[in-house]
């Protein structure tokens, strides 16, 4: 067993884990963060994407012990103070998800992408999410959503766009 101390979605945890425990399994099985999903075993699908110390990673490709001392943000911690992140909002508005299985990873990767490139063109979005597979949408609406979120997140975007809907709302 090895000890891991990690902050996940703003909460501090200290746990003994087997060194072989993947970060994604730690999140799902120990912390109950089942919003982060597993879609493959070869690092292709990106469904398990979370942020580790501010950067997107595939949490199947990080050992929990490697995250020791780090800060993890999952899809479950993305909305702040009851407000959806603009990328979450845009995914809803642009019908960028169907079955929802790739969605947590896709959103986390899109958020990372916009951090690096606040105004990506279509090609840049497509390449920015190339590590995340979706089988439902054909990606078109995902690309639209990411570009739309980019516009909303621009400094000086309209106040309306900066006030995301309530997380709990759901009654769109």
């Amino acid at each position: 067993m090895a000890q891991v101390r990690v902050t996940v979605d703003g909460v501090n945890y200290a746990d003994d884990v087997e060194p072989r425990t993947l970060l994604v399994h730690y999140l799902r099985e120990r912390l109950g963060k089942t919003g982060t999903l597993v879609g493959c075993d070869t690092s292709n699908c990106g469904a398990c994407t979370v942020h580790l110390n501010g950067q997107s990673v595939k949490s199947c490709s990080v050992l929990a012990v490697q995250a020791d001392g780090g800060e993890v943000l999952t899809i479950e911690g993305l909305a702040r103070d009851g407000k959806l992140h603009p990328v979450q909002e845009a995914f809803n508005e642009h019908h960028a998800l169907q079955c929802g299985y790739c969605t947590p990873g896709m959103i986390m990767q899109a958020v990372d992408l916009l951090g690096d490139n606040p105004d990506p063109d279509e090609r840049e979005v497509r390449e920015g999410i190339e590590g995340n597979l979706c089988r439902c949408t054909g990606y078109q609406n995902i690309v639209r959503a990411v570009q739309s979120a980019a516009q909303k997140m621009k400094p000086g975007a309209t106040a309306d766009a900066q006030t995301p809907a309530s997380v709990a709302g759901g009654g769109n």
């Binding site: 963060k33 089942t34 919003g35 982060t36 999903l37 999952t74 899809i75 479950e76 993305l78 909305a79 959806l84 979450q88 995914f91 809803n92 998800l97 929802g100 969605t103 947590p104 959103i107 997380v167 709990a168 709302g169 759901g170 769109n172």
Partner: peptide, 9 residues
């Protein structure tokens, strides 16, 4: 979508 985009799945 509300659940699916927040990981409340």
């Amino acid at each position: 979508d509300a659940r699916l985009i927040t990981g409340r799945t």
